[in-house]
Measured scan of single mutants.
Amino acid sequence: EKIKSDFFELLSNHHLDSQSRWSKVKDKVESDPRYKAVDSSSMREDLFKQYIEKIAKNLDSE
């Protein structure tokens, strides 16, 4: 859970929106230790998708 929250924090530093693509974001964040803390690339992508869904819901509710 800490790894997930750290990863979300990392993503939040990059001002993403619901149109952001993992392939582009990954290049910007892959040197960060919070990125490396997530064991697998599929898990990183899953967390990215969860984060994008979360910010999309937040935008819808505003």
Results as ranks from 00 to 15, higher is better:
Glu1Tyr: 15
Glu1Cys: 10
Glu1Thr: 05
Lys2Asp: 07
Lys2Trp: 02
Lys2Cys: 03
Lys2Arg: 09
Lys2Thr: 06
Lys2Tyr: 03
Ile3Met: 09
Ile3Trp: 02
Ile3Gly: 04
Ile3Phe: 05
Ile3Cys: 00
Ile3Asn: 06
Lys4Pro: 02
Ser5Met: 13
Ser5Cys: 04
Asp6Pro: 00
Asp6Gly: 06
Asp6Cys: 02
Phe7Asp: 00
Phe7Ala: 00
Phe7Tyr: 05
Phe8Ala: 03
Phe8Trp: 10
Phe8Val: 03
Phe8Met: 06
Phe8Tyr: 09
Phe8Ile: 08
Phe8Thr: 03
Phe8Cys: 02
Glu9Asp: 12
Glu9His: 04
Glu9Phe: 02
Glu9Ala: 09
Glu9Arg: 06
Glu9Gly: 04
Leu10Lys: 00
Leu10Tyr: 01
Leu10Arg: 00
Leu10Met: 15
Leu11Ser: 00
Leu11Met: 05
Leu11His: 00
Leu11Trp: 00
Leu11Ile: 04
Ser12His: 11
Ser12Ala: 15
Ser12Tyr: 04
Ser12Phe: 04
Ser12Cys: 06
Ser12Glu: 13
Ser12Trp: 03
Asn13Ile: 10
Asn13Ala: 08
His14Arg: 05
His14Ile: 11
His14Met: 15
His14Trp: 11
His14Gly: 03
His14Gln: 12
His15Leu: 09
His15Arg: 13
His15Asp: 13
His15Ser: 12
His15Lys: 15
His15Tyr: 10
Leu16Ile: 15
Leu16Gly: 01
Leu16Pro: 04
Leu16Ala: 05
Leu16His: 03
Asp17Cys: 06
Asp17Gly: 06
Asp17Val: 03
Ser18Phe: 08
Ser18Tyr: 11
Ser18Trp: 07
Ser18Arg: 11
Ser18Thr: 07
Gln19Asp: 13
Gln19Pro: 04
Gln19Ile: 07
Gln19Cys: 13
Gln19Lys: 15
Gln19Glu: 14
Ser20Gln: 05
Ser20Met: 07
Arg21Met: 12
Arg21Glu: 12
Arg21Phe: 04
Arg21Val: 12
Arg21Gln: 11
Trp22Glu: 02
Trp22Thr: 01
Trp22Arg: 00
Trp22Met: 03
Ser23Lys: 10
Ser23Glu: 14
Ser23Arg: 07
Lys24Ile: 15
Lys24Trp: 09
Val25Arg: 02
Val25Glu: 07
Val25Leu: 13
Val25Trp: 09
Val25Tyr: 06
Lys26Ala: 07
Lys26Trp: 04
Lys26Phe: 03
Lys26Gln: 12
Asp27Trp: 12
Asp27Phe: 11
Lys28Met: 13
Lys28Ala: 10
Val29Arg: 00
Val29Lys: 00
Val29Cys: 10
Glu30Leu: 07
Glu30Thr: 05
Glu30Gln: 14
Glu30Val: 08
Glu30His: 08
Glu30Lys: 15
Ser31Asp: 15
Ser31Ile: 04
Asp32Ala: 00
Asp32Arg: 00
Asp32Phe: 00
Pro33Ala: 10
Pro33Tyr: 07
Pro33Val: 08
Pro33Cys: 07
Arg34Cys: 02
Arg34Asn: 02
Arg34Glu: 01
Arg34Val: 02
Arg34Asp: 01
Arg34Gln: 01
Tyr35Met: 03
Tyr35Gln: 01
Lys36Leu: 11
Lys36Gly: 07
Lys36Val: 10
Lys36Pro: 00
Ala37Asn: 06
Ala37Trp: 00
Ala37Gly: 03
Ala37Thr: 03
Val38Gly: 01
Asp39Pro: 13
Asp39Val: 11
Asp39Gly: 14
Asp39Phe: 09
Asp39Met: 10
Ser40Tyr: 03
Ser40Ile: 03
Ser41Thr: 12
Ser41Glu: 15
Ser42Ile: 11
Ser42Asn: 14
Ser42Leu: 11
Met43Ala: 14
Met43Asp: 08
Met43Leu: 11
Met43Thr: 14
Arg44Val: 04
Arg44Tyr: 03
Arg44Leu: 03
Arg44Gly: 04
Arg44Asn: 00
Asp46Tyr: 14
Asp46Ile: 13
Asp46Val: 12
Leu47Asp: 02
Leu47Tyr: 14
Leu47Ala: 01
Phe48Cys: 04
Phe48Tyr: 09
Phe48Leu: 03
Phe48Met: 04
Phe48Ile: 05
Phe48Val: 09
Phe48Asp: 03
Lys49Trp: 06
Lys49His: 15
Lys49Gln: 14
Lys49Arg: 11
Gln50Cys: 09
Gln50His: 05
Tyr51Arg: 02
Tyr51Val: 00
Tyr51Ala: 03
Ile52Glu: 04
Ile52Ser: 06
Ile52Gly: 03
Ile52Asp: 04
Glu53Val: 09
Glu53Tyr: 10
Lys54Asn: 14
Lys54Cys: 13
Ile55Pro: 06
Ala56Lys: 14
Ala56Ser: 14
Lys57Glu: 14
Lys57Leu: 09
Lys57Asn: 13
Asn58Gly: 10
Leu59Asn: 15
Leu59Cys: 15
Leu59Thr: 15
Leu59Ile: 11
Leu59Gly: 14
Asp60His: 12
Asp60Glu: 09
Asp60Lys: 11
Asp60Tyr: 05
Asp60Thr: 08
Asp60Met: 06
Asp60Trp: 04
Ser61Met: 10
Ser61Gly: 15
Ser61Thr: 09
Ser61His: 09
Ser61Ala: 12
Ser61Leu: 08
Ser61Asp: 09
Glu62Phe: 09
Glu62Tyr: 13
Glu62Trp: 07
Glu62Lys: 15
Glu62Asn: 09
